[in-house]
Design a protein around this nucleic acid. Structure first.
Lengths: 301, 301
DNA sequence: CGCAATATTATGCGTTTTCGTCATATGTTT
DNA sequence: AAACATATGACGAAAACGCATAATATTGCG
């Protein structure tokens, strides 16, 4: 895969001929012809039908042409940033923290109320992102702190302190028939509408496998990507979900109950910061406020 | 600019040494050393400081490493699409929709309850993302529908139907002193703790400029990036925020009031889909359900 | 503390691959 | 017949490496 080849694809789709493309790009026609062949060979896809000495774009070319455009745009953005860096640009004390988007409603405000009591002069910037992006923001030093789920290897240059844990639970409306059980197994979930998260993520795949081994077909009604939306859907009677008790505890106000899910799985959550970078007093204060709020939110577990 | 060079940058930032990078990429150490030099030369930027025989990433490397990652992800996506085109994959009918993360709590569930009444057999996948990413997901045909704020140019190949509008309002707790006013100007906000969103986005910059022209210094206490978290912070007494009435209407249950903000600004919201791709019946149904829910949520405006 | 072993980056030199061009063959349309 | 189009043979320059090695730094051990 080669940037130049993608530029050729883009231009060919725009001009419709190798000659015009060559002219537009300052190449020879035969070069363009060859590069098209190279790209088709690399992708193992026919991008242009050869019809009466003419090139006719295939539907595949149109789809992949868009992808090519995305790549080229990303390249241009990088070049633009490099340009900015070569020419040079600063601010006041800000502490930045990222949390999963499931934590904005009550957790984050409660944490910040606690925090500003002792740090009234600090400006705070909050982000609500996925674990992957949080880890990246920490590693790239865009943010001071990131709360994330600990799942295997974290990137280099990141230190993660474990601050919470949970276990997989089924989350149901209070009046759901399965709420009478002390624990819920896969067999109980046969023909039960499900709201599942994390499609194609490792933990989700483990869950899919567990269903398969138990010979129970998942009746997935809704795929979504945040614990918060899953819980909200449950609260509105759209089905039941399987998530970590840590998150389920954040949604107790939604008139939901949680029951341990069998097979048992546990989760750990940590607070990430860049390795080798001492936290400022202000950031350390926010770290402490977060830990206090976690203890409050998981009370009664 | 060369994909291979970007892979080297990414891996070097991850491993920290040319030897480990060479091993990870199946190259020789000297090849990696040269390619790093080539990249530095191409960009005219020093990406790694050479300190005692070690490579130390510069801040520039960190920033551009992110850009490199974006390019590589776009390339991977293209490869994935090519793979799909070669194999001609298929599956059950799924309708995918992306909404701003501020809409998961009540809006999305209410919409889906409405929808599944008429479409009980369809599996739904929901995403909660930023407008930029939603636009991208639609353009890349990852999703069928995306609700987003209409702000200037949308990407090529995207059709956006306007479905809602709003005006800028100040959102306050019910018992806030400014709640007595019929409208709130910038002068009212002198020395008032603010919770602002959209830092460095065009609309935010326009707001910053308005404050500057009015000669009022913003007392920003919290920067955040979602309307939902801003409203929640307001509800918890952390300050007041300025957002679109469209979103403020979604949070009426939070014991908040909204007052028109002067200078007046309006916002438009639309439903995006890929141009030239007819919506399936199921996707059209979801589009209709979304529009119905918007009417309900903005009632009383 | 001194020294050997180990780890690291950079560079000389050579080989292979890639990226084109020029010239030309072949086919289509006006 | 002229103009326009794509594809391919032959060739050369540039790029992309690898092997071997030099220079420097760090670590482990006696």
């Amino acid at each position: 895969m080669n940037i130049r080849l993608l530029e050729v694809l883009r231009t060919l789709l725009a001009t419709g001929s190798t000659i015009a493309t060559a002219k537009a790009m300052g190449l020879s026609q035969s070069g363009v012809s060859r590069m098209l062949q190279q790209l088709e060979s690399d992708l193992a896809i026919t991008l242009f039908a050869r019809d009466k000495g003419r090139l006719i774009p295939t539907p595949e070319a149109v789809v992949l042409g868009r992808d090519a455009e995305n790549v080229l745009l990303a390249v241009e953005r990088m070049s633009g940033h490099a340009e900015d860096l070569r020419s040079g640009a600063s601010g006041p004390e800000i502490v930045r923290i990222a949390l999963p988007s499931s934590m904005w409603e009550n957790f984050a405000p409660a944490m910040l109320i606690d925090y500003v009591r002792d740090f009234p002069g600090v400006r705070i910037e909050t982000f609500f992102e996925t674990t992957t992006l949080i880890s990246k923001l920490v590693g790239d030093r865009v943010i001071d702190l990131g709360f994330l789920r600990m799942e295997g290897e974290t990137g280099p240059g990141i230190v993660v302190d474990k601050v919470a844990s949970g276990q997989s639970v089924c989350v149901l409306p209070k009046d759901h028939p399965l709420a009478e059980l002390d624990e819920i197994t896969i067999k109980h979930l046969k023909n039960v509408p499900l709201i599942l998260i994390g499609k194609q993520r490792p933990n989700r795949m483990a869950l899919d496998q567990a269903f398969k081994r138990a010979g129970v077909k998942q009746m997935v009604k809704i795929e979504t990507h945040t614990n918060s939306s899953a819980c909200s859907y449950v609260a509105h009677g759209l089905g039941i979900t399987i998530i970590s008790s840590f998150y389920a505890n954040l949604y107790r106000h939604l008139n939901l109950v949680q029951r341990p899910f069998i097979p048992t799985a546990t989760q750990e959550f940590g607070l990430a910061r860049a390795d080798g970078v001492p936290l400022s007093i202000a950031a350390q204060g926010l770290s402490d406020a977060l830990k206090r709020q976690i203890q409050l939110s998981q009370r009664g577990e």
